[in-house]
Amino acid sequence: MKTQTTKIERRIRLAGILLIAGLLVELVTLRWSHPTAFLLFLLLGGALMALGIAIYLLSIVSAEKKPSLE
């Protein structure tokens, strides 16, 4: 049980770091009016945020699945 909690915590921490990085990219690109800023926001910021959300969702799914297997 302890290992399970730690794994979820690790995933939440990773998801959080990725989301913060994505949000910081968004914050920086909002200050810059240039087509490159638009691309950076979509490709880098969007990818970081999507990955962060996906890892968070994965952590929820895996946390639900594990007890039913035991």
Binding site: L19, S33, P35
Partner: peptide, 30 residues
């Protein structure tokens, strides 16, 4: 914190960037 707010911020960001891409300054930035 990990789903609702980032999705909201991302959606609002897309809208903001698209609106800004319509401006004359944006087109002339190259």
């Amino acid at each position: 914190a990990l789903l609702i707010f980032p999705a909201l911020a991302g959606g609002m960001g897309v809208n903001r960037h698209i609106e800004r891409s319509k401006t004359t300054n944006f087109c002339l930035s190259c």
